[in-house]
Design a protein around this nucleic acid. Sequence first.
DNA 1: ATATACATTTAGGCTAACCTAATTATACTT
DNA 2: AAGTATAATTAGGTTAGCCTAAATGTATAT
Lengths: 219, 219
Amino acid sequence: MTSSAEENYLKAIYKLHEKSGNMVTTSALAETLKVSAASVTDFIKKIASKKLVSYEKSKGVKLTDKGRLIAVNIIRKHRLWEVWLVNKLEFKWDEVHEIAEQLEHIISDDLVDHLDKHLGYPTADPHGDLIPDSKGRFAKSNSKPLLECVKGEKVKFIGVADHSNNFLQYLTKNNLSLGDEIMVEAVEEFDNTFTVRVNRKENKIFSKEVVKNLLVAVV
Amino acid sequence: MTSSAEENYLKAIYKLHEKSGNMVTTSALAETLKVSAASVTDFIKKIASKKLVSYEKSKGVKLTDKGRLIAVNIIRKHRLWEVWLVNKLEFKWDEVHEIAEQLEHIISDDLVDHLDKHLGYPTADPHGDLIPDSKGRFAKSNSKPLLECVKGEKVKFIGVADHSNNFLQYLTKNNLSLGDEIMVEAVEEFDNTFTVRVNRKENKIFSKEVVKNLLVAVV
DNA sequence: ATATACATTTAGGCTAACCTAATTATACTT
DNA sequence: AAGTATAATTAGGTTAGCCTAAATGTATAT
Ligand SMILES: [Mn+2]
Ligand SMILES: [Mn+2]
Ligand SMILES: [Mn+2]
Ligand SMILES: [Mn+2]
């Protein structure tokens, strides 16, 4: 009923909407899905006729409730598989995305339930992204970029805004992992370079580009 | 490069050849893959041109070494996933085949390696079928149907010849599991009904139809 | 208000993997 | 050896998901 292609379109629409808040454009979808704009227009018409998206010609698309539920379910599966790959199979957090892109399309509600249980009902994936429940509901999150913190603030590193392998590997190289406690020791006014104390041990220095992408929660 | 469809054709050819020892016919493939004979002929021509099978028109197909390696690799993945589903996710042995049919097509050598390690390098799947190594080699097996055993023989139950859910559920209902020790107490000459002692405890009675499909090894 | 740039849609095509109906090849019976 | 049943192939089509090139729409700058 729902093909992998369809699942990928719905997921992409969901994520692009999440990012911009607006209707999702043909060109944005073409870009993220690496297909031509013409293919996107074609496909959109198909899923619009299935009531998975609402489509305003030349303006863009928005998910319907039906479409969003499918999208969120794929995201749920993707994140559960990533947890499995990292926690059980000992993959690194920068090695799991591509494999999860395939695994997320496996169809079996039973499998998802068993996997969820096997993993101890995790609430976040290895990158700190929240895992929705089977009804498509997300927990409330109160994270913010470290960039928004001020000197003296003590926070916990709970997620990344940039999921690129480059960034993940940069953090690994600098020994920063999810769960680490971060104490803001100094903020350079001029360029927003942060000096932070990690886990009450060494001081580390991070550029604005980095702290912008570190998501933290007040402890 | 290798689509799921192609993998399924190669796997089907491998299994049908294993069963009959002969070239695999168009109609046998159509039957197992649930597609029309015309589709099979089409597809065979394609994989023959890729040197994955050798094809004699109107006679049948045989795997080449290249084709066999792909087939065996899919079987390896299928069986590893089944082990995972049963040993780690607590599925029953009659619940895993369909899910493994999907999982076997996930493409990542790294994933297979990590999974194999996670499972402790298993040599057989939940139905007792041998798991080939990554080079496509199978261990030697010396199993035989319980039907071929004689009174007084003590053996171990190590596999099933019939993989149907009906048979697997029959065995579950009768508390017979892989690894059980079986002592042949009596064989009824007339209809080959077996009376066996399981794990030095209760006696059980199995029909010829059943013992034909129980694979055992001398202990 | 018009020109220009850029985004989107339409038109027409392609390939993989299937199908049915018609034809041809092989095997079995008398 | 011819006739009949069955298996396999060929011919001609379909659908999903993609493509390029051409046409149309929309936004921005003068
Ligand atoms: Mn991911
Ligand atoms: Mn993730
Ligand atoms: Mn199986
Ligand atoms: Mn099996």
